[in-house]
Design a protein around this nucleic acid. Structure first.
Lengths: 158, 158
DNA sequence: AACTTTAGTTAGCCTTGCTAACTAGTTTAT
DNA sequence: ATAAACTAGTTAGCAAGGCTAACTAAAGTT
């Protein structure tokens, strides 16, 4: 419990608030995918992070396994994800995004990110550069941080 | 539908992802308040935005009125919000955070933001400055943007 | 007075999160 | 080699938070 400088506190407060409002705006674009948020996000991990088992996916999404069981089941029913048995360990299986899953995700990602990208276009180059650097810093902040074995995620949309 | 430069797209993608991961981490601190996220957020609007009716609160939270009805009812039961009849218009009432509501919110906000502030402390001043500027840019991006009558929010934690 | 609009609620649904308790494989230790 | 312990995943059951549709009641308009 180190003492926190008020400047850190202020910046944290504003970043926090900005992140909340940003995501609220972007989330509206997701409705066009026809996929609920948790499903979209899990699918994204499979598309960008590659095949993995349910436990790993739950950890990546920071939810408990039973929660992920339901999400994956819905994705399977929708034909967006399939399971492949692992001969070496028959307790579980590997989850893989189907071609359809990849396509839908890619379209959704384009819509969502396009919305933000349109906003970015209006910015002068100097401000754009700041946001670019900020994204990199924030990614490191979390990744190098406390819990979660999440150093190996690639360019996930999520 | 202007053409989007791929640089805008990439930055948008990374910002989006960074925002998601940031909020996931911070949300964990909220459990200590004993309040579920939507309740905490609605209470925050009442504390920082001042008294308002249910419709205005729903709009501020970007949810539909029936959703806010439930959230407010829970806050009332917990003694964190009270209603005051408006003599001029008896259809609705004004929602006001109680002293207890304000105290709980303030404690929660401190915990949550402190978590992020601790992470910020580890950064060199140059990176801290970038995040500070980024927060300001993002606030403007949304505020000056499309919908929502949200120009008048003060320093809301949410 | 009749119509329209606005504020809010109720009912009923779905999704997403949790914990507890379980099955079924795998690994470790005796 | 068998018992014990651990790991992967599911089921059951609950709560929160989101929605739409349909309603009541008050206010405002014609």
């Amino acid at each position: 419990m180190a003492r926190i400088a008020s400047r850190d506190f202020d910046t944290a407060d504003r970043l926090h608030s900005a992140a909340i409002h940003l995501l609220r705006r972007l989330r509206r674009e997701d409705t066009a995918t026809g996929l609920a948020p948790a499903r979209l996000s899990a699918l994204s991990v499979l598309v960008f992070g590659g095949p993995m088992n349910l436990t790993a996916l739950a950890a990546a999404e920071q939810v408990q396994p039973p929660t992920m069981t339901k999400v994956v089941q819905a994705l399977e029913v929708g034909g967006l994800v399939r399971r492949e048995a692992d001969a070496a360990d028959r307790r579980g299986s590997t989850l893989i995004a189907t071609a359809r899953g990849r396509r839908i995700l890619e379209e959704g990602r384009r819509r969502r990110v396009t919305r933000l990208a349109e906003e970015l276009q209006a910015l002068p180059a100097s401000e754009h550069a700041i946001l670019e650097e900020a994204a990199a810093i924030l990614e490191r902040l979390g990744g190098g941080g406390p819990r979660l074995g999440g150093g190996r995620r690639t360019g996930a949309t999520r």
